[in-house]
Amino acid sequence: MKTIQWGFLIVNYLFLGGLSAGLYFVSALATFLYRIEEPSPYTRIARMGAFLAPWPVMVGCGLLIFDLGRWYHFYKLFLHLRLASPMSIGTWLLVFFNLIALINCYAWLTAAQRDRLFQLVPKFLGFLKKLNYDIDHWRRYLAFLGLPLSVGVGIYTGVLLGAVQSRPFWNTNLVAQLFLFSALSTGCAALILGLARSE
């Protein structure tokens, strides 16, 4: 009974996940190169990358969840960790990558932007305003933490398809490399577009 699985939603996720991974990777590299005290061209690259990185993958995660047969059972993926299954590894990678990317995005906000963000917090959630910390000095640690995660998110989609030995067309190690490098190039392209828009 041959039927086609993994349609439109998954295809879009593969693109969005790779896009985020590439953005984060380039942003993290730029973070290693910039110096906080002097104005450098890397600051803009790192900041733009950090701002853009979390959103595509979050949309992608939504797509993944709604592709499930029973999306309200998605929490069951987090009750198990099966290292033999690329999908199980991928779900955990995505969770940690999303978290790190969001924190990194916050770490790159300027003081003025942070104040504007916390003005949007409604009054009854006033206690959240205590979170208005300056975590600029975390940037390099976050880049260091997130770099392997972004490579993981970029490469695991390829592993997901490449590990299937019953589809000979996919079943090659090159698929993983292809996904990783296309993720990096998509990230760079999105970054260039973002920088061009912000000028």
Binding site: W6, D67, L68, G69, R70, S85, M87, L160, V164
Partner: peptide
């Protein structure tokens, strides 16, 4: 089963 259909592939 969450219905991810990886097994079918």
């Amino acid at each position: 089963c969450v219905g991810c259909r990886y097994c079918m592939i």
